[in-house]
Simulated assay, not measured.
Amino acid sequence: MHGVTVVLLAGGVLCLVWGSGGLVLLGLFFLAMAVMLRPRLSARPEGETVLHRADAPELYALVDEVAQVVGTRGVDVIVVDKEINASVRSYGLRGRRALSLGLPLWEVLTPQQRVALLGHELGHYSNGDTRHAVVVATALHSLTMWCHYLAPIRQPSAVEMFVNLFYAVPRLLVQGVLVLLDHLTLRATQRAEYLADREAARAASTEAAAGLMDRLLLADSVEVFLRREVNSAALAGRRSARRAPDRTDEFWERLTAHMASVPEHEYERQRRAGARRGHSVDATHPPTHLRRACLLSGPPTEAAVALDEGRRRRIAAELARARTEVARSIVRDGIG
């Protein structure tokens, strides 16, 4: 994919330098295509819920400690959002790192499960996750851009129908290459998830990493609770909806209490349901019940990083503003 971009760039330059007339136009077209399909690096995270080291020194210190345990370096910026998820990504030419923490997930985890979550995400760097690497990631992005530009025009005119027909074969070829690259990297990506789970257990203990898997099994329950909160605020009227985020402690406490009320047999039911659904070969993440079983199959490990109550409270204080903003965003805009 990157070779195609280079060829387009070189061909455009050659047509402009040594060509004339139609070749110049063709060269401009090649250059325009090269610019559109160039490898794009992620931009620096921006927004009100971006936390820098000065904003949350205790949280960054925890991330750095976990990173040292799993054999990598920490992150350059932390983004707090309303996703029921967490992720890491690289941005910029210097390969800086951003950690995204979804507060709805963070809030329902125990302190050691939070350490396990950090260990898992940072483990993607220490284990060399192929799909997170710059070359493969930008190649996938370039292919996606090709598919976007070759997408058929909706409700086409007579001329646009001809254009759709002309693009049909290139579009199928590009989609085929995208599917091929996707499947070639899926196995490595699924393997990287298991390795990242191992790093989570090293950092927080096997028990905490397995508990994190259990929480992930109930992500749908968290989403149902959040949607219920959104609907309740909407039914109460705009005035009540504006007041609700100001009581963020109550908002997050209700979510924590909701998850604490889930009985153990519901976790077991979710595991069995996952086992019945089987293993999806086209999923970037292996089934959660398999990840949990893999963690428990080996000898248990003790926690290398302990998040005590005092440290937990200091981190919670650093996240106070973000908790307010995320709660306001959930109540006002929903979760998706």
Score class of each variant (00 low, 15 high):
residue 12 G to V: 05
residue 15 C to R: 04
residue 15 C to I: 04
residue 15 C to V: 02
residue 16 L to D: 06
residue 19 G to L: 14
residue 22 G to K: 12
residue 29 F to W: 15
residue 29 F to Q: 13
residue 37 L to E: 06
residue 49 T to D: 05
residue 52 H to K: 06
residue 59 L to Q: 10
residue 63 V to N: 07
residue 80 V to E: 12
residue 81 D to M: 11
residue 85 N to R: 05
residue 86 A to G: 04
residue 88 V to I: 14
residue 89 R to G: 14
residue 90 S to A: 15
residue 94 R to Y: 08
residue 94 R to Q: 11
residue 95 G to T: 03
residue 97 R to Y: 01
residue 102 G to Q: 08
residue 112 Q to T: 04
residue 112 Q to L: 09
residue 115 V to F: 00
residue 116 A to P: 00
residue 119 G to N: 02
residue 120 H to Y: 01
residue 121 E to T: 06
residue 121 E to I: 04
residue 122 L to F: 00
residue 124 H to M: 07
residue 125 Y to W: 15
residue 132 H to Y: 08
residue 137 A to L: 10
residue 137 A to M: 08
residue 139 A to H: 11
residue 139 A to K: 12
residue 145 M to L: 15
residue 156 P to H: 12
residue 161 M to Y: 07
residue 162 F to S: 10
residue 162 F to T: 09
residue 167 Y to K: 12
residue 168 A to W: 14
residue 174 V to F: 15
residue 178 L to C: 14
residue 190 Q to T: 06
residue 193 E to I: 06
residue 193 E to F: 01
residue 196 A to K: 05
residue 203 A to H: 01
residue 204 A to G: 07
residue 205 S to Q: 03
residue 218 L to T: 07
residue 218 L to I: 06
residue 224 V to H: 15
residue 230 V to H: 10
residue 234 A to W: 12
residue 235 L to D: 14
residue 235 L to Q: 14
residue 236 A to P: 14
residue 245 P to A: 08
residue 245 P to Q: 01
residue 251 F to E: 00
residue 251 F to N: 06
residue 252 W to R: 04
residue 253 E to N: 10
residue 254 R to D: 12
residue 255 L to H: 11
residue 255 L to R: 05
residue 257 A to Q: 09
residue 259 M to H: 05
residue 261 S to T: 09
residue 264 E to H: 00
residue 267 Y to D: 01
residue 269 R to K: 07
residue 270 Q to I: 02
residue 271 R to F: 02
residue 279 H to I: 13
residue 283 A to W: 00
residue 286 P to M: 09
residue 295 L to H: 05
residue 301 T to P: 06
residue 303 A to C: 02
residue 304 A to E: 07
residue 304 A to G: 03
residue 308 D to G: 08
residue 312 R to G: 08
residue 316 A to N: 13
residue 316 A to I: 12
residue 322 A to L: 13
residue 332 R to T: 13
residue 334 G to N: 12
residue 335 I to R: 09
